[in-house]
Simulated assay, not measured.
Amino acid sequence: MVGKGGKIMNFFLQGLTMGFAIEAPIGLANLFVINNALTQSRRRSYIAAFFVAFFDIALSIACFFGIGAIMKQFEWLKIAILLFGSLIVIYMGINLLRAETSEIGSKDTELTMFKTISTAFVMIWFNPQAIIDGSLMLGAFQVTLPVNSYPIFIGGVVIASFVWFIGLNLVIAKFKDKFNAKVLRTINMVCGAVIILYGLKLFYNFITLIIH
């Protein structure tokens, strides 16, 4: 028979593994962290990773308690997020494509604190698909848990998010000096192109919703 301590650890591990499962697939947040680790100063890249984790945790908690249901109830909210989110994401991707090789990693192109925080917020919260997917995963899991286990489960999700994004930044930043300017430029362009594709997909979803 599993004791109280064992049950607590079990709920925590469920939250931890669920958190890693949500973060691991390559998406906008991971691309943003990777790009910052390669092109920004180490201090600025850690700040970016911290705020990505912070906003991701806030979104996970919101998904756990049913923000996806709110979006389904208010169709206009989903449409608005899709429109503004897609345009902002496309704009960010274009900026990455336009960055010159000589500019990558220079102090002149280092993001301001405001831009770092606002971009991290947009990457996490202006992606309706991520909100809905997160709600399906975390919301579905919530109904299987006793109410008193919620803080323990969410604690596991919180730790997974911080470990993932800070760890990803650490690994990429540690090895970025091994990349020359040409490689950095290529990575920058790939990240920019993928981000634009994400933005176009969001915009396509917006058009689909409008038509139907």
Rank of each mutant, 00 (worst) to 15 (best):
L83C: 08
M123K: 08
T101A: 15
N35A: 04
S86A: 10
F32A: 14
M123P: 05
V190P: 05
I159E: 03
R42I: 11
S106D: 01
G19E: 10
V194P: 06
F64A: 08
M113P: 02
F203S: 05
L59N: 01
G6V: 04
I79W: 08
R43I: 03
G155V: 10
S135T: 14
K176L: 05
T119G: 08
E103L: 01
A173T: 03
T186E: 11
W125R: 00
I187P: 10
N10V: 00
F179Y: 12
F64G: 07
L13G: 06
A140Q: 14
L170H: 02
N180S: 09
T116E: 08
I61P: 02
M71I: 08
P146M: 03
V89K: 03
C63N: 13
Y150Q: 07
I22Y: 06
I196C: 12
G27Q: 07
V171K: 04
L38S: 07
V89P: 01
L97Y: 15
L202R: 01
K201A: 12
M113K: 05
G66P: 06
W164S: 12
F54G: 07
K7P: 04
A49I: 02
N35D: 06
G27E: 09
M189Q: 13
I81G: 13
H212Q: 12
I88Q: 07
R43T: 14
A140D: 13
Y198G: 06
G27F: 14
I207D: 01
L168P: 07
F114M: 12
F32S: 08
M189A: 11
S102E: 14
L111R: 10
M9R: 14
F175A: 07
L82G: 08
P146G: 01
A80G: 04
S45W: 02
N36R: 11
A29I: 09
R42F: 07
S135F: 00
N188M: 04
